[in-house]
Amino acid sequence: MSPVRLGPKISGLLAAATTVILMAFSADDPGDRLRDPAAEAHARALFRDIRCLVCQNQSIDESEAPLAEDLRKIVRAQVAAGRTDAQIKAYIVARYGEFALERPTVSLGNAVLWGAPFLVLVVGGGGLFLHRGRAAAAETPLTPEEEARLERISVPPT
């Protein structure tokens, strides 16, 4: 059987089904890639920081959705135009809001998010440090009578 005869038929079904696909195949069109490998790598790094807004929790690097494809084109064009990461992200945020950033901004609104884990370490570590002082204080040396009693009841090993 020739693949050419049946191929398009199946492809047609596949295309019809694409709309209901939940998953994605990192569907980045090779034709869209930037010629300069360094710029392409830079764009790829940015893709991982930008969320596909219509997907189930994927970055635009991973998603096959048309929106992700458009966003990839925008990012590539801006990288090629020599804009900085900050400018590109600001452009994305201006259009789609902070929701589009995979890495939340370090801002007052996210203070708990960024700070709490490290606060736990600092407070916990501080607590341990204080406990150390207390444990040392609580451990009083034995009195001579106790020493003598310990001597009596200790059985030498062997």
Partner: peptide, 19 residues
């Protein structure tokens, strides 16, 4: 946190792998 932040301020944020 995205749920909490949205409930408190109505702003939607994402927390992804870079965090």
């Amino acid at each position: 946190y995205p749920l909490i932040r949205q409930a408190l301020t109505g702003e939607a944020i994402s927390v992804g792998a870079p965090y």
